[in-house]
């Protein structure tokens, strides 16, 4: 009797094992790198809090680790981060959402096919370009309308950061709206709704968790954005909500200290990790929330 199915030569088997091992190794490297980073962050943060009490870190209203009169209050940095991120979201959310409504409810397939990639190019511009755009173009422009605005301020990088995250919001929100079943639109229109009423009365509310997820992700992106604020917002940790003043964000502070010649092991050096940890926790929470919302959304319309 002849065999119709050839038996696998044993060499092929070991080859496959080898490939498997290499692939596993690559996956393991990235997991361990991440764990390593978190580990170092955690270690240095604990070191930092041996010298600075958590309470004063959270409540002191000054951040002056580089001066002789040292204060370690995260509030001014958090405030700068909050202010620039809030401005960015105030710009990006309405524009991004309206773009998404337009693309999903009004644009034909051909227009959507051209606009979406163009928007994604916006997202691909290096942030350093946005930073100088804010500093050299937007700030002088704003100064014409707002006399007395400082050359470094929160408003200009906030706006530019908003422009940068528009594609992210519009793309994710559009995905969520596009996934709303067509029969809900038909139901609304059969009840006498216009296209506009259908879009805002049915599609947007039905896509709410997807839209909220895109919003949270955008907030997280704005909080973590570094280059634009480091270039255009100034480097003065200051507890203010006035967007015409220079501020410093958590990310910009990390850049400032990292670029200087701060010796390893000093308290200034450790501040980088404490601030980094705060940043890491904030964005981690936002990303987890966003992920959870998107899961919920896809459950509803799986």
């Amino acid at each position: 009797m002849t065999e119709t199915i050839r038996k696998r030569p044993p060499r092929r088997k070991t080859q496959e094992r080898l490939v498997q091992a290499v692939l596993f190794f690559c996956a393991a490297v990235s997991v361990f790198t991440t764990l390593g980073i978190v580990g170092v962050l955690l270690f240095e943060t604990i070191e930092f809090f041996r010298e600075v009490p958590l309470w004063s870190f959270l409540t002191d209203t000054q951040w002056t680790p580089l001066f002789s009169d040292k204060h370690f209050g995260i509030l001014p940095l958090a405030c700068g981060t909050f202010l620039t991120a809030a401005i960015a979201i105030a710009v990006a959310m309405p524009v991004g959402l309206l773009t998404a409504v337009f693309l999903s409810e009004y644009a034909g397939d051909r227009l959507r096919g051209t606009v979406k990639p163009v928007l994604e190019i916006l997202a691909g511009i290096p942030t350093v370009v946005y930073g100088y755009f804010a500093l050299l173009f937007v700030t002088p422009l704003l100064q014409r309308f707002i006399p007395g605005m400082a050359g470094f301020n929160a408003l200009s990088p906030g706006i530019v950061m908003g422009i940068m995250i528009i594609p992210m919001i519009s793309s994710l929100s559009e995905d969520a709206m596009y996934a709303v079943p067509q029969n809900l639109r038909e139901a609304a229109q059969a009840l006498g709704a216009s296209r506009l009423q259908t879009a805002f009365g049915v599609v947007v509310p039905s896509a709410f968790s997807g839209i909220a997820a895109s919003f949270l992700l955008a907030v997280s992106r704005a909080i973590g954005e570094t280059m634009i604020v480091a270039i255009a917002a100034g480097q003065q940790p200051r507890l203010t909500l006035d967007p015409t003043h220079p501020v410093e964000t958590m990310t910009a502070y990390i850049v400032q200290v990292s670029l200087g010649d701060t010796p390893t092991g000093t308290i200034e050096y450790k501040t980088i990790f404490a601030v980094g940890m705060a940043l890491f926790l904030a964005t981690l929470v936002l990303n987890l929330l966003s992920h959870g919302l998107r899961e919920r959304f896809s459950e509803k319309y799986g």
Partner: peptide, 18 residues
């Protein structure tokens, strides 16, 4: 729209709004 207010429609698959 006026036509649809006079002539209502129910679809094959129940489609309540969320």
């Amino acid at each position: 729209i006026q036509v649809r207010l006079q002539i209502g429609m129910v679809f094959q698959k129940p489609n309540p709004f969320p």
